[in-house]
Design a protein around this nucleic acid. Structure first.
Length: 473
RNA sequence: GGCCCCUUCGUCUAGCGGUUAGGACGUCGGCCUCUCACGCCGAAAACAUGGGUUCAAGUCCCGUAGGGGUCACCA
C-alpha cells in the first residue's frame, strides 16, 4: 500500500510566476488531484537579497489565476508549517546540529575570498575545483565565523530514480563537502529543501530539470538525516524559439502577462500541460480531463520550445467553446481596461457571440468589437477604397431601406441587401462592403446583418448618414 | 573543460521490435462566402549519425556529433 501522495511547489520569490514555474506547479497540482494527494506550497525565501514580499504575492496571484489551489501553504496553513523558509530557521539549525554532533557535518572557517581565489586558480589550471576539506578535522569553535559543511561520505557513486528520465547515476568523485548553512545561520538551498521535504513528508519531488545536479547531494543528505529518499521527477525545461532557456527576450514569460494579453486561464493551463505531456492525439483538455489523465509516465524527457502560435490556437479554441454569456463575462474587465464602459450594456453577450470565432484573445475581442461601444474610427485605406462617390447610391438605398422599416430583422435585411444588389446587377459584396466600412470603419467584421442588428436602427442610420455626407451623397 | 540529461516533420508530439511512421500548430493549395474569421478537403514536411543485437530496429546496446543543464556562503 502506497502512502498518500504529497507533492509540493517551492518557488523562490524573486520575481513573478514565470511560464516554467507555472508548469512545474501545474504538474504537481495535477498529480496531487489525480491521486487524491496533497499539494503543498512552500516559499523558499532564504535568499534575502533577492526575495521580496511583492514577488510572493505575484506568485500566489498567478497560481490563483490558473486555478491552482494549495492544500497547505501561505494563507491556508497546515500541519507542517510554517510554509516560509525564513520562518523555519530554528528547524534547520536543529537538523544541522544533529549532523554536526554525529560528525556528518562540520564547521568550516574558510573565507569566501580564499575559496574564490582557489576556484579562480583551478579555473586557470583547467581543473575542476572541489573543496579540499581544509576544515574537515578542525576542532569546533563557535566563536569563529563559520559555515556548516556536509561531510561527504566515502562512496563510489550515487544513484536515484527519476520518474521522467529513469535511473541517474553520479560519480562520487564529482561531489564535494557542500556548505549547507551560511555563516549567518540561514540554510542553503540543498539543505533547506531537504529538511523541508522531510518534515513536510513530501514523497514525490517534481521540479525543474535544472535541479538534477543537486539531487545526488540531496539524496546523501536524506540518508545522513536518516529519512527515506523521495521519488524524483525532473521536468524538462521550456525553451525559446532559439532553443535556449525561455527568458524575457523571448517575449512574455510571466503567466500574468498572458492574463493581461487576454488569454484564458484554461488555455494557458491546457497549453502548458501539453508542452511535454501527451494523452494520445488529444489536444484540448478541460481541467477535469487533465486531472483524470495526468501521469508522469507520459511526461516527455525532452525540453520543449514554447510556441506562441499554438498557444493562440489553443486560446481561440477555448474561446469558441465558452457560452456567449460566459465569454462576455470574461471579456468585461478587458473592455473596462480599454476605457469602454460596457458593464450595463445588454448587447454584450450577442457581441461576444458575433466575435467568438473571430477573436484570438479577449484583448483582440475588445479591439475588434470596439465600434459597437465607441464612435466609428474610419480606417483611411478602407475609406478611400469604399466610401467613394460611386457608393453613394448604394448607401442611400440601404439607408432608406432601413429607415423605411421599423425594427430591423435579419430576414428583412437580407432581402433589402439582395434587392439593392440585384437592382444594380451587383454582387452582394459590392453592396455590403461600403456599408460595412460606414458602420464599422473597416473592411472586416461579423456578417453585415448582424452588425446592423447589434448597432440598432438609430445608430446604423446615423452612421450611414455620416458616410453619405462624406461621399457627397 | 568535468559531470548529468536529451535527440521522430519548422514546433509540440504518438509510437513502447513487424506501421503506407499517426495527430496538432504553423505553412501552402482548394471549397464555403457580403468582408474577416470559423468550418471542411488536400499538399509539402521527421526517425541526427556510425556500428552492433535480431528473421526484423524509430523502438534494444555501444560509439560519434549536436543541443541543453550544472559546477556559489543563488535557487
Amino acid at each position: 500500500m502506497n502512502a498518500p501522495v504529497r507533492v509540493r511547489f517551492a518557488p523562490s520569490p524573486t520575481g513573478y510566476l514565470h511560464i516554467g514555474g507555472a508548469r512545474t506547479a501545474l504538474l504537481n497540482w495535477l498529480w496531487a488531484r489525480h491521486t487524491g494527494g496533497t499539494f503543498v506550497l512552500r516559499i523558499e525565501d532564504t535568499d534575502q537579497e533577492r526575495s521580496t514580499t511583492q514577488a510572493v504575492e505575484a506568485i500566489l496571484d498567478g497560481m490563483r489565476w490558473l486555478g491552482l489551489d494549495w492544500d497547505e501553504g501561505p494563507g491556508v496553513g497546515g500541519p507542517h508549517g510554517p510554509y516560509f523558509q525564513m520562518e523555519r530557521l530554528s528547524l534547520y539549525r536543529e537538523y544541522a546540529e544533529t549532523l554536526v554532533r554525529s560528525g556528518k557535518a562540520y564547521a568550516c572557517y574558510c573565507s569566501k575570498e580564499d575559496l574564490d581565489a582557489q576556484r579562480e586558480q583551478a579555473r586557470a589550471e583547467k581543473r575542476q575545483f572541489i573543496y579540499p576539506g581544509t576544515c574537515r578535522d578542525l576542532p569546533y569553535d563557535p566563536s569563529r565565523r563559520h559555515v556548516i559543511r556536509f561531510r561527504l561520505p566515502k562512496l563510489l557513486e550515487v544513484t536515484f530514480t527519476d520518474l521522467v528520465k529513469g535511473p541517474i547515476t553520479r560519480p562520487g568523485s564529482t561531489l564535494q563537502d557542500e556548505v549547507i548553512v551560511r555563516a549567518d545561520g540561514v540554510p542553503l538551498y540543498n539543505f533547506g529543501a531537504v529538511v523541508d521535504d522531510v518534515t513536510m513528508k513530501i514523497n514525490l519531488v517534481a521540479r525543474g530539470d535544472d535541479h538534477v545536479n543537486n539531487t545526488a547531494i540531496q539524496v546523501l543528505l536524506y540518508e545522513a538525516l536518516g529519512y527515506p529518499v523521495p521519488t524524483f521527477a525532473h521536468l524538462p525545461m521550456i525553451l525559446g524559439a532559439d532553443k535556449t532557456r525561455l527568458s524575457k527576450r523571448h517575449g512574455a514569460t510571466s503567466v500574468t502577462a498572458y492574463r493581461d494579453m487576454g488569454y484564458l486561464p484554461e488555455a494557458v493551463v491546457n497549453y502548458l500541460v501539453r508542452l511535454g505531456w501527451s494523452h494520445g492525439d488529444q489536444e484540448i483538455f478541460t481541467l477535469e480531463e487533465l486531472v483524470k489523465y495526468f501521469g508522469f509516465d507520459h511526461v516527455g524527457a525532452t525540453s520543449g520550445v514554447f510556441n506562441p502560435e499554438k498557444m493562440v490556437w489553443v486560446n481561440q479554441t477555448w474561446m469558441k467553446s465558452l457560452t456567449p454569456e460566459e465569454l462576455a463575462r470574461r471579456a468585461a474587465p478587458y473592455y473596462q481596461a480599454a476605457g469602454l464602459d460596457v458593464a450595463s450594456d445588454p448587447r454584450l453577450p450577442d457581441v461576444a457571440k458575433a466575435f467568438q470565432e473571430r477573436a484570438k484573445t479577449l484583448v483582440d475581442l475588445v479591439a475588434q468589437s470596439r465600434y459597437f461601444f465607441a464612435p466609428v474610427e474610419l480606417d483611411p485605406k478602407a475609406r478611400d477604397k469604399f466610401l467613394v462617390p460611386d457608393a453613394a447610391p448604394i448607401l442611400r438605398a440601404i439607408r432608406d431601406g432601413i429607415a423605411a422599416t421599423g425594427a430591423p430583422d435579419a430576414a428583412g435585411l437580407e432581402r433589402l441587401f439582395h434587392d439593392v444588389a440585384e437592382a444594380r446587377s451587383l454582387g452582394l459584396g459590392k453592396v455590403a462592403q461600403p456599408v460595412r466600412v460606414a458602420l464599422t470603419g473597416g473592411t472586416a467584421s461579423p456578417g453585415i446583418y448582424d452588425v446592423i442588428l447589434l448597432l440598432g436602427r438609430e445608430q446604423s442610420l446615423a452612421r450611414l448618414d455620416a458616410a453619405l455626407h462624406l461621399v457627397g451623397g
